[in-house]
Structure formats: structure tokens, C-alpha cells
Design a protein around this nucleic acid. Structure first.
Lengths: 207, 207, 207, 207
DNA sequence: TATGAATGAGATTTCATTCAT
DNA sequence: GATGAATGAAATCTCATTCAT
């Protein structure tokens, strides 16, 4: 009876076109090299039209980053809700993150580059990452309650693991990998998970 | 003995001034925000003079990066030559890297930012990092020969550990740390080393 | 009696909204800084709607200026019709002008700024002002017939007095006055009238 | 023996070229219509070169206005120093102002237009004009000490006379005069001076 | 009539790079 | 070697104006 809610207005479709175009261009040229005119061209719109939707390139990236963050966070939480064991859930969560980045290369590259250069964006990203670190640190404490990794500093450990996760994703999924090392999705993800698991689920040496 | 080395020519002194200025400006403003005119101003020379020594900002950074890489490599090798045990040597090597970056914040920031944006620099940096990964992978294989971390992919593991090392250094030494986490050199370095050690020196669970 | 006049059409109400909005925005931001979008926003209408009523910002201002001019002219004529003496009528006429500008700050600012920049508007304003000058010159000649201000060029004198009147109004009523001089409506108006009176009603020195 | 100090550097000559070009373009197109590119073209330099000397068009105008103000002020002071009588000196001072504006039409137009629109410039100009008003008010008080214009408010009177002076100059020297009134330098200046003199040098009516 | 949306056409501004001295 | 000065080539951003609905 009622027209489906989907009927996006013209403006919504244009906005979507700019987002899609930005993901494309960021993935192709990098965030810093991307010009507004490139994004507009990829979106099939005029440069002036861009400014009807975003004030700056950074604003558009922030919108994409929020979307991305929401998805990654949700995906990372799923395995825990599903009641998997700590180690199992961990592997799944890391894998979820990896796959999200793989699917959203534009955001991956945009976020990383912008976080390094644009003060405004960096602040927002530090906040989002702060949430992730808090969650990881919580998981470390939970493991410690079970007798694992005694004495480890949960927050610093979380910071280091998060740094590894992000940068490793950037190198392999964003930048095309290391020199002279063939790309292998499986092995890369497995190495990442194994390090993470071993870094948390170890016990003190028996005396 | 070799007094001649001291007598730096006018040109050498100017070159040195540009390098020092670049380190200062990169640390202060970031590599991407640094203008040639900023570096020249910090060096107390004219912009035109800059071009007598380097063709681009990237060239100057490459020179700095080579210096930096040589120092870090040498420092990382020392503990092994000193005959320390695997784990001990590892901690020392990581600490050496950390301290080198702490002392050379300009290079740290410059290298990281440029590796993300400038194709020319990125290629060179991937080569330098390739060496490090080869070395780390070698250490992993050595550990495997002693029965540690069976089944782990040495190169992927090295890539992930290297990613962690670099990015964690950048966050803490370059960018000022995580949101709402106080800086603590000791704890940061310790967390980093512990993860690394546990990621490599683990044995298969006894059945 | 004429109830029909009241029934403003939709279009008339919209037109009125644009005029009121323009007066507001000109007074607040100045004519040159006023964007069509600002006026439309203040009027609560769309920008596109603006073009149903006026072709340009200048056209809208011209409409306002005609209104303004008619009112000021009428007010200036009143005291003469009322049969006041020359000097008395003069003071009243100047006061009428002053008060009209005070009540219509938007027009004051708009007219002044536009007359300085927009050729199209300037031409129209020169015509309107020409009328005023003709009238003032006539008053000067009348005074001369009574033996006042012998030898004075009526038109040039009228031009100068008119310039004083307008600019003084603009400074005090439009721009907020001189630096470090407190606003005082009474004294300002009095100084203006006195100068005008003395400039016209003087007699040759007795030999 | 020593080379004459005149030998202007290349930069000084370029600066001078920009100033001259600005005066030309302001006089021709008005300040607000003048584009940086017009000024650069008139100066025979590139647009980029402009920015080596001034940050904005307003900055260049301020420089011109200061020059202008200094000259006008000095010229206005001369007749008083020369020991002329009050009325004589007054006519000379006004004439000096008139002639300065006549010679510097670019500044006249630039100053007037900018004072109306650009906040930054307006503030500076209000200051400069404040000086003039203080001086005129002083002259009014001096006249009052001799029994002239009793009861007149010196500052308001000065403000009104200054308004007349400036706007009359703008209309006749900047804008080309009133509609249908032939230009006549002599008569214009004479009307202006006469008004000024009569506005100040009048005595209370004998009872 | 009214309006959401789109855009052409400019103007400002920045900077790496060059060159004459 | 060193530098004051000049500039080409972009990229960003703004707005009046138009048009389809």
C-alpha cells in the first residue's frame, strides 16, 4: 500500500554517489592525493555540487569512517555474543576486522592517511580507536582472571595489538603487501591471529 | 690522526644545516605539512640554496632515512653479536629500535608519513623494511629450530611484528600516545617486548 | 471602505517578505556582503523563489530605494507646505530626512553601498538625488531673493549640503558613528541643521 | 663617491609598480571590482608576485591610504603654520584636501569603497579620520574663543563638515559629479569652502 | 507559485621550482 | 655557493543563476 521507504530523494542518491566515489578514489589515489575534483568526476557530479553535501574532504572521510567503525565494532562483538571460547572468539573477531578492511579499502587508506596528517580527523579517529583499545584491554583482563598473561599491562598491550592489527591490515590490504612477499590472505590472517593469541594466552613458566 | 675529516667544507656545513632543520620541522609540523621554505628558514638559508643539495623534500628524507636505518640495524644486531640468549637479545634489539626512534622523532614522523603518500619514498622504504623482515624471519626460523612456534609462517610473522613495532613507535613516540592513556616509556616498551617474545617463544601444547 | 486592498495575494505576501528580509539583512551585513541566499533565508523562502520577484539584488534595492525616496521627499516637503518660515522649515525638513534614515537603516546602508559600486543602481540613485538637489537649489535661490548668501552657486551648494546630509546620516545611523565619540541623536541632528542654516542664511558683511 | 641612496632594489621597484597599478585600477574599476589579477596585469607582474608584497588587496590599500593621509594632513596644516588668518587658512586647508584627492583618485575611490565594506580597513580609516576630526574640532573651539559660533558642538560639527568634505570630493572627483551638473572645479571648491566658513564663522544675532 | 538540487564561471591563495646576479 | 625575486600551475571554495518537478 505505502510506497516503500526506500524511495531515496535525489539528494540522498547524490550523497551516496559522492561516498561511493570517494571510496573509489581514496583506494586508487590515496586520500591525500585525492582532489575534490577527482571525487566529483568519479561521482559524475560537478565540483560545486560536492559542497552542497560536505564542507571538506575530511568531512566526507569522517562520515565514511563512522560507518566503517560501526561495522567493524559490530562484527568484532559478534563472536563473543555467540558464546565462543576466548581464543575462538578472538580469532573470529580479528578475522572480522580483517575482512571489513578488505571490503572497504577506500576507508582503510583514507583513515590511515588522514589520521597522520589532518588534526581534525586524527582527533576523531583517536576517539574511535580509544573505544577499541578499551574493549581489547577488557579482554586481556578477562584472560588474566583466568590466570593468563600475569603482570601484563592491559592497556599498553591493547595499544600494541591494535597498532599491529591496523598497520598490518594497511600494509597488506591497503598497500599491496611487503616487497617480494606474495599475497596470501590465509597465511597473513593466520599469522596475525596466532601472534595475538599467543601474546595473551600464555601462562607463567612453572618454576 | 685524520684531522682532515673535521674540516667540513662550507657546502657540508650547509647540507648538515638542512638535515638538522628538516628533522626539526618534520618533528614539529609533520612531513607532509613541511614546506621547503620552512626547512630553509629553520636552517637559516635561502630556499634557493636548498636546491643546491636536494631536488625534492623526499630526497632529503631519503638521506635521513638511510642514516636512520643504518643506525637502527646496527643497534638491533649488537645484542646478538654480544652472545645474549635468544629472548634476551630480542628484548635488547627491540629496545634499541625504540630508543633510536625516540631520539630521532623527525625521521620517525617523516618516514611514516612519506611511506604512506609518496610513491618514490615508499618504494625505497619497502626495500629497507624488507631487510628488517628478512632478519626477523631468520630469527623466527632459528627459534623454530629450537622447537618454538611450530608451524608459524616466518615471513608473515615477521611482517606482523614489524608492523606492530613501527606503528606502536609512531603512536607513542611520534604522535603523543593514545587518547586518555598516560605516557610511560617503561611500560610501553615492556608490553611491546613481551608480546614479541610470547609470539615467538611458545611451544605446542603437550597433548 | 476598500476591503479589497487588504486581500494581499500569496505573491504579494511573498514579495513583502523579501523586502522586509532584505532590509534586515542589509542592515545587519551590509548590502555588498548580503547574499541572495541570506535574504531568502531571512524571508523563510527558497532562493529560487526570489527570482520570481526580482532579477537581481540590485533590483530589489531599487524598489526599496524608490519607496524610501518617496517617503523622504514627502516628509521634506511637509514643513514648507505647513507655511513655516524658511529657517524653521529647513530644520524640520532636515530632521525629517534624518528620522527617515534612522527608521530605515537597511535602505540607508543599501543605497549608500550600492551607489558606490553598482553602475546600474548608481545611475538610478543619481536621478533620485538630482531631484533633491534641484529642490535644495531652489530653496537657496529663494533665500538669495531675500538677500541671503549672495553670490553662492545654488546647485553646487545644494550638492555639498546634500553630500553632508547623506554621509553624516550614513556615518551616524548606518555605521555607528565616529571613533570615540558617543552617539547623541539630539546633538548630531542639531549640528547638522545649524551648519545647513548658517550656510544659507548669511548676509554679506556690511562694508 | 657613494652611490646615491636612490638605487631602488628590484623588490622596491616591483612594490612601487603594484602601488601605481592599484591606484590606476581602483580609479578605473573601483576598489571592489578590482581583482588581484587586474592589478598584477597593470603592474606587468604575475599574480603570484603580488603575494610576495601584500597579503590581500586591503593591505595594499591600507599602505596607499597611509601615504595619502600623511600627505593630506601635512597639506592641511601648512596654511596654519604659514600664519594665515583663520578664515584664510581654512580655505587653503580645504583646498589642499581637495587637490590631494584630485591627484589621487585611486586612493579616494579605494578608501571610500573599502571603508564601507571591509571591516579591517574601516577600523583603520576610522582612526585616521578621528585624527582629522580632532583637528577640525580644535579649530572650531578656537573660533568659539573668538566669539564665533557660540553653542555649537565642536565634535559633531567637525564630524558633519568632515562628512561633507569627503563625500563631496568623492562625488565630484571620484564619481564624476552630479547628474546634469557640469563639472567646474572652481565653483565646486568655492561652494565647499564657503559653506565651511559660514558654518563656523558666524556670530549670534544681536538682540 | 514554490523549491530542492545542480552547476558554470571565477577569484583567491599556495608552493615548488627557476633564474639572474 | 648563495639568494632575492618571480612565476606557472593547481586546488579550493563561493555564488548567482537555472531547471525539473
Amino acid at each position: 500500500m505505502q510506497p516503500l521507504e526506500k524511495a531515496a530523494t535525489k539528494g540522498q542518491r547524490t550523497d551516496e554517489a559522492f561516498r561511493a566515489a570517494a571510496r573509489l578514489v581514496f583506494a586508487r589515489d590515496g586520500y591525500l592525493n585525492a582532489k575534490i575534483s577527482d571525487i566529483a568526476a568519479a561521482a559524475g557530479r560537478s565540483v560545486a555540487s560536492f559542497y552542497n553535501y560536505y564542507d571538506t574532504k575530511a568531512d566526507l572521510l569522517i562520515a565514511l569512517a563512522e560507518e566503517f567503525h560501526a561495522e567493524a565494532t559490530q562484527l568484532a562483538a559478534l563472536p563473543y555474543r555467540a558464546g565462543l571460547s576466548g581464543e575462538e572468539a578472538l580469532r573470529e573477531a580479528v578475522a572480522g576486522f580483517w575482512r571489513t578492511y578488505a571490503r572497504r579499502r577506500g576507508e582503510l587508506i583514507g583513515i590511515f592517511q588522514a589520521a597522520m596528517i589532518e588534526g581534525r580527523f586524527r582527533d576523531r579517529w583517536l576517539e574511535l580507536r580509544g573505544e577499541a583499545i578499551t574493549r581489547i584491554a577488557g579482554a586481556v583482563r578477562a584472560a588474566q582472571a583466568d590466570g593468563y598473561c600475569p603482570g601484563a599491562d592491559p592497556v599498553m598491550t591493547a595499544s600494541a595489538l591494535s597498532a599491529m592489527l591496523e598497520h598490518f591490515c594497511y600494509i597488506w590490504l591497503g598497500q599491496g603487501g611487503e616487497k617480494d612477499v606474495p599475497f596470501d590472505d590465509e597465511r597473513a590472517l593466520d599469522a596475525l591471529c596466532t601472534i595475538w593469541v599467543k601474546a595473551v594466552y600464555w601462562r607463567a613458566e612453572p618454576l
